[in-house]
Design a protein around this nucleic acid. Structure first.
Lengths: 116, 116
DNA sequence: GCTAAACATCGACGGACGTCAATGTTTGTG
DNA sequence: CACAAACATTGACGTCCGTCGATGTTTAGC
């Protein structure tokens, strides 16, 4: 079950009721687990947090490598995973690539886990 | 970063503000990622869903192996991961082991992801 | 056009994970 | 005290993942 190749997160929220409300199907579980795997990594959690906290709500790779203490290729890799998961957007301006949170993406995941 | 050996989920909710509100620390990211890894598996998502849907909100291993289509040792393994993560409780009666959802556990995880 | 900077991609390596068959452990039954 | 049933544990195997160094690609500036 590779983390990559995800459907947009919108589909997750649209297709799945909270998992404690209805029995989740095999394919729904597969999709949801892919989204969760994208977030279930300490480096990627910190990247999300750093991007959200950065001024303008966006940050380039060069803003992130130092505070996160990982190599540039590794940071680019994690950012790609998050973009493929529909959690971040990437907009390239000049030589910089700016990453920004997709509004509501994290909330879509949270909604499927919420029981109340 | 093994999935096992978790602190109770209560601690996650108590220690961590939503990750988009404050920059998450390295150790907080480590802890949260462990909880998320426990849930980020299709078999475990379905187990949670099946347990929640079962009568009385609890189910034994023999109730779960058939609908989930996995071997008994594999089901026991996943249930142990969920118990160690603080998501399920295990109560043994006679030869059966009954698993039940921990109230609020999933919500604690969801709360850390919620942005609004 | 050349050089430098920012970033992506590739290839490789070590560790973690999901799965199962086989075996161990506990509990009820005759 | 066997014996069977329910479950946990062990050991093993293949796959996936996180990380890095090296290299490729694009853009700005001289």
């Amino acid at each position: 079950m590779p983390v990559a190749e995800l459907l947009p997160l919108r589909d997750i929220a649209a297709c799945c009721a909270p998992i404690t409300r209805e029995i989740i199907s095999e394919s729904e579980a597969e999709q949801l687990s892919r989204s969760l795997k994208a977030v279930a990594d300490p480096a990627r959690l910190r990247l999300i947090s750093l991007v959200a906290a950065h001024e303008g709500g966006e940050a380039c790779v060069c803003d992130l490598t130092k505070p996160i203490g990982l190599s540039q290729p590794t940071v680019s890799h994690h950012l790609k995973v998050l973009v493929d998961a529909g959690l971040l957007t990437r907009s390239k301006r000049a030589t910089w690539a700016y990453y920004k949170l997709v509004p509501g993406a994290l909330d879509s995941i949270a909604a499927v886990l919420t029981t109340v």
